[in-house]
Design a protein around this nucleic acid. Structure first.
Length: 565
RNA sequence: UGACCCAUAGUGUAAUUGGCAACACGUUUGAUUUUGGUUCAAAAGAGUCUAGGUUCGAAACCUAGUGGGUCAACCA
């Protein structure tokens, strides 16, 4: 084991992803005074998802690894889509993931004045002009990758006229959409980004930070490079779809004659059985397909937090998926592996019965209650032990009993003996059914010498069941989640929209589960392992009188897997 | 259709930069086990998209092809 860890350490030393290779080369060459300064630049138009977590871990991770800095910067250049609610949620999520931006919380909108001044400079250099064309006209004149664009009739306005018009745009003299400021770059570049892209558009909209100060707002390409430049970012990491924008990024910074960070693109994360676009997630929220952005089925950071994922597990996941330029789809099983790995070490074990079947132990004294000692976490001795009440009537899991059991069924069946964890061996003597033939109760007998679950005579008992006392317990609601979509690639279906592929059974609510008394005052988001069932966390909908648990993920289950095939 | 990017076990990422493919997840098998969990041990699974070329030697470099992705918003 030690050897393995050493190997992994060595590997993480020598095996660098392509961004680390670039950074190390830059460091070696003394580029940017050998600084590393990154940034995570979300647009506050939605909640962060696991794909953002990858980017957050990358940006903050690179800064950490190379003794640099990472800023949190809101790219808030479009007031019609952005809201403070999103700003707040993003701050909470990044913090929860465990990253610290110090005092470097920035907003693109804080730079609007500088951006405006620089745009004026471009006009003076005849590198930008005010265009009166409508969006439709521009689109119609755009041409195609192989056919050049038609020049805007306003392309050759005088500097003075451009200056005047741009100032009046800013002053609010023109209605929305009536004019834009455009960069004067090319009419026939095969890269469509370079065909006189818009730099400013008119939007008489209230901005969450600048209020009504502005009615013109910078476009992404113009704004983003300047934001990076102003913050002296060294490596501006973004996703692949901005690859075609890089020449424009460079052109703007070059023409603005300002410090030029290096844009590097990497492949965004895709996860099987879910969607990762903010637009689609927004639709699920707005159409009430889910309870909100933090619905535990959502791939959002807030949803996963509520589901019971730990920040450590998300960070470990991010490390393991790697960074590259190849389009990828990560198997959710890897994500689930990472939570289990973390929770296995940390979660307090507890017994809960989710689908109760009553068991009466006929030879156990009526009215007697014993307190039995149970281990809190076999992976962590310091977690200690606790006492669990046991009496004549208990509940076991319905699926732990079978009347006609196959040979490899190590659980309860007529005549078969099992161990009740930490309690006693019991044997099933009698099956009680209701008029419809449904099993409603089991009559069993116990071996008093097997107290604690120990075999009194060395006899082997293969099965161990979890249980909860029928009288000393807590009733709880349990919410069990399945994948949100029925297919592994909901975006990939040509016929059906992702909404038609939603899993109708992604949420099942168990109103009446029984949990052992020790969880009584469990705090929201505290996590447990319900033995043999999986990991669970306390939902925020819980009240003083009713606990609600979310199932984070089940335990690995080689038994039921075997039986599916 | 033009430009740009990408191509390595089922999935993802490596290969100390040209020296005969490794790690993780997943899968399977066995051992241990008072969780059919954990842990431990092992196995199967690619010869690196194709075809040429350079080289003593290519997953890596070159050319062409094929397949996939991105771009033609006054979104980011």
């Amino acid at each position: 084991m030690e050897n393995k860890n050493e190997n992994n350490l060595e590997e993480s030393k020598t095996s660098l992803n392509f961004i680390e290779q670039i950074i190390e080369t830059d460091l070696k060459n003394g580029k940017n005074e050998s600084r590393v300064h990154t940034r995570f630049p979300p647009e506050p138009n939605g909640y962060l998802h696991i794909g953002h977590a990858k980017s957050i871990c990358l940006n903050f991770g690179m800064a950490e690894k190379y003794n640099g800095l990472c800023n949190l910067r809101f790219d808030d250049t479009n007031p019609t889509k952005e809201e403070v609610e999103y700003v707040d949620s993003i701050i909470e999520d990044v913090k929860w993931l465990g990253f610290d931006w110090g005092d470097r919380l920035y907003f693109a909108s804080d730079y609007f004045d500088q951006m405006y001044d620089l745009a004026v400079e471009l006009i003076k250099k005849e590198k930008a002009y005010v265009c009166d064309l409508s969006a439709e006209d521009v689109s119609a004149m755009r041409g195609t990758p192989s056919q050049p664009s038609q020049a805007s009739p306003y392309r050759n306005r005088s500097i003075e006229q451009n200056l005047d018009l741009f100032a009046r745009m800013k002053a609010g003299e023109f209605p929305d959409g009536s004019r834009t400021l455009r960069a004067k770059i090319s009419l026939d570049s095969p890269n469509m980004q370079m065909r006189d892209p818009a730099m400013y558009r008119i939007r008489h909209a209230h901005h969450h930070r600048t209020g009504d100060k502005w009615c013109i707002y910078p476009m992404y390409d113009w704004a983003h490079g300047l934001e990076d430049s102003i913050e002296k970012i060294t490596h501006s990491l973004c996703t692949l779809e901005f690859e075609n924008h890089r020449p424009l990024y460079d052109w703007y910074l070059n023409e603005a004659e300002v410090y030029r960070p290096q844009q590097i693109e990497f492949a965004r994360l895709n996860l099987s059985y879910t969607v990762m676009s903010k637009r689609k997630l927004l639709e699920l929220v707005q159409e009430k397909q889910v309870s909100g952005w933090d619905d535990p089925r959502m791939p959002t950071i807030s949803g996963m937090r509520r589901r019971g994922y730990t920040p450590e597990s998300l960070r470990a996941f991010s490390d393991r998926i790697g960074i590259a330029k190849r389009n990828n789809v990560i198997d959710v099983a890897l994500l689930e592996h990472n939570v289990r790995e973390d929770l296995n070490k940390r979660a307090k074990r507890v017994m809960a019965v989710v689908d109760p079947l009553k068991v009466t132990i006929k030879n156990y004294p009526v009215g007697q209650v014993e307190e039995l000692e149970a281990v809190n976490n076999p992976e962590d001795e310091s977690a200690g032990t606790r006492m669990i009440p046991f009496s004549r009537e208990i509940y076991i899991e319905r699926e732990d009993f079978m009347e006609d059991a196959p040979k490899k069924f190590f659980r309860l069946a007529p005549g078969q003996e099992v161990r009740l964890r930490y309690a006693y061996f019991i044997k099933c003597d009698e099956v009680v059914k209701d008029s419809s033939g449904k099993v409603v109760e089991l009559i069993c007998s116990y071996d008093p010498d097997s107290k604690g679950g120990k075999s009194p005579d060395g006899r082997k008992v293969k099965g161990t069941l979890h249980w909860v006392d029928a009288h000393h317990n807590i009733e709880a609601q349990v919410r069990v989640y399945d994948r949100l979509f029925t297919v592994s690639d909901p975006d990939g279906d040509k016929e059906k929209s992702y909404k038609e592929l939603l899993n109708p059974d992604s949420l099942s609510i168990i109103e009446k589960a029984f949990v052992e008394p020790s969880v009584k005052n469990a705090a929201v988001l505290s996590y447990f392992q319900f033995e043999r069932l999986g990991y669970f966390t306390v939902d925020k909908d819980s009240t003083d009188s009713k606990l609600i648990f979310n199932k984070t993920v089940g335990l690995k289950d080689s038994y039921s897997k075997e039986n599916k095939n």
